[in-house]
Design a protein around this nucleic acid. Structure first.
Length: 497
RNA sequence: GUCUCCAUCGUCUAGUGGUUAGGACAACGGGUUUUCAUCCCGUCAACAGGGGUUCGACUCCCCUUGGAGAUGCCA
């Protein structure tokens, strides 16, 4: 039998790490088994729905390079794949359940339910949830409530006795006494919209889904869904509940842990291949040894057996490491292309860059490449190449444990050597060597000569290699920045006699 | 409260009765380097606790503890 799996997000927010991990696992499983990957939009919550979320779903999957065999846009034999376009189907099936005596109309108001919930929570009674108030209404009672214009919901008649068991590929058999299953959950809301449980079960059946891979937070709903399949007389699919993705504190990953939406990661300059690689490794492993997987490899190698049962903490640091690794594997030309938007957005270059700016970008790529964790790091790293830097302070120019006078002396003499060397076109190593010799002669650390130059040129003690930076900035600007800094030190010396 | 699930270094994990419990990230130390980073080398670091089963348990069973999730006319 052909494997058919689906990712069924609800467009009520930006796609986040947990959701994408579920999408990825489904997608890889389908590909690894020569099956179909289906995308279904579960937009049954009118309150929280947003167009932006739907667009974000498409953008995210496209960015990751995840394509679907059936679903919105591409269509397929069991469409439509957007639940809001299938409402008549859910209504029909829900009413059929009522006709079969498997479900019933409930006229309880939200206010009553609210009060009920409060009471139960306050009293900490064992039975939480709906009290099945309308389960056995007589025809007469129903007619009266109907006459009052109350729009009913349809609730499932969950058996009071017995237990329901379902099999999970990872977890094994999971069973629950029926009296512990959510008491008579709503299937069809009073506005005629289906709830998740109803729409999900009906669509999975109608779309011939063979395996349900979803997060473990759905385990408690498992028996309920099986009960629904039974009520319809359908065969449930194979279940595989994926371990959840947690934050550092062990709670479900959420915004307070940091970025969670793929859009955020993308904006900061994480590469899709890095994010995909890392995310695939939380809750799944290949051999505990191999860590780098391309999308194509994952499509071949992914298997259910290697999925972990325990929840996993999302490690931002390891993601950073992966991203750095992938950045370093990029060709210079491609990396340059990826970096440009960040420079444009920061206003360091024009949009698009001028020929001159593009030339600087191309030449700086090899230099910044091994220093980037995320693409947006390039902005602060290369600012001094595109903008004039503020005049450095005296303190900034002083190397550690080196006074102003000594520094000025080293700086001036170092500059002379540097300038002469550069203008004569001497190789960098030779100039470097001469400056190092100077430090020895003056009895200061090598740093004592180089650091003032670096700070004068880049405005920071941390920068790309000095000579690369000089070439990138250009000799004229380099000299004027250094001379300005020398003046600052001179003034300081004069002030203090 | 009730129900369900889970449990190997700080983190992600390998391990399916006999291993010096392996790898990666992080941390720390060292080397390369004029800074930072990269790269290389090394160090620290785990089977939650208690009972069984067994010649032998990280591996199987039970209990405890801890954690998580669910308990909605949200998904």
């Amino acid at each position: 039998m052909e494997v058919r799996v689906r990712y069924a997000p609800s467009p009520t927010g930006l796609q986040h790490i947990g959701g994408v991990r579920t999408a990825l696992f489904n997608y890889f499983f389908a590909r690894a088994n020569g099956g179909k990957f289906i995308l279904r939009v579960e937009d049954t919550d009118r309150e929280r729905y947003s167009d932006e979320s739907l667009q974000d779903l498409f953008d995210t999957l496209e960015w990751l390079g995840i394509t679907w065999d059936e679903g919105p846009v591409v269509g397929g034999p069991y469409g439509p794949y957007i639940q809001s376009e299938r409402f008549d189907i859910y209504k029909k099936y829900a009413e059929q359940l009522v006709a079969d005596g498997k479900a019933y109309y409930c006229y309880c108001t939200p206010e009553r339910l609210e009060k009920l919930r409060e009471q139960q929570q306050a009293s900490k009674s064992e039975q939480q949830g709906y009290d099945r108030h309308c389960r056995d209404l007589t025809a007469g009672q129903r007619a009266e409530l109907e006459a009052r214009g109350i729009k009913p919901v349809i609730r499932l008649k969950v058996p009071m006795e017995g237990k329901t068991t379902f099999h999970d590929v990872l977890m094994g058999d999971i069973s629950r006494r029926n009296r512990d299953v959510s008491p008579d959950p709503v299937l069809l809301k009073s506005d005629g919209f289906p709830t998740y449980h109803l729409a999900n079960v009906i669509d999975d059946h109608l779309m011939h889904i063979t395996h349900i891979m979803r997060a473990q937070e759905w385990i408690p709903s498992g028996p309920l869904h099986v009960l629904l399949y039974e009520a319809f007389g359908w065969e449930p699919p194979v279940y595989c509940h994926l371990p959840m993705v947690m934050g550092k504190d062990g709670q479900k990953l959420s915004k307070r842990h940091g970025s969670t939406s793929v859009r955020d990661f993308r904006a900061k300059g994480y590469l899709p291949e890095a994010l995909m690689n890392y995310v695939s490794l939380v809750g799944w492993s290949y051999d505990g040894q191999t860590e780098f997987f391309s999308k194509e490899e994952l499509e071949k190698v992914f298997s259910l057996e290697k999925i972990n049962k325990a929840p996993g903490v999302f490690d931002y640091k390891k993601l950073d490491w992966f991203n750095g690794q992938y950045i370093r594997r990029k060709g210079d030309a491609e990396l340059a292309r990826l970096l440009v938007p960040y420079l444009e957005e920061a206003g360091l270059v024009q949009t698009p860059p001028t020929a001159e700016q593009q030339d600087v970008i191309n030449r700086m790529v090899p230099v910044v490449k091994e220093r980037l964790k995320v693409l947006s790091d390039v902005v602060d790293m290369s600012r001094f190449l595109f903008e004039d830097i503020p005049a450095p302070s005296v303190d900034a120019l002083l190397p550690k444990n080196q006074d102003v006078k000594t520094t000025l002396q080293a700086f001036e003499q170092g500059y002379e050597i540097l300038r002469a060397g550069l203008e004569a076109g001497e190789p960098d190593e030779r100039i470097e060597r001469s400056m190092a010799d100077l430090s020895e002669k003056l009895g200061v650390k090598v740093n004592g000569v180089f650091m003032p130059v670096r700070v004068a040129l880049t405005g920071s003690t941390v920068s790309p290699p000095l000579f690369d930076s000089i070439r990138l900035v250009g000799l004229d600007k380099t000299f004027s920045r250094i001379e300005r800094a020398i003046e600052i030190l001179k003034d300081e010396v004069q002030k203090n006699g």
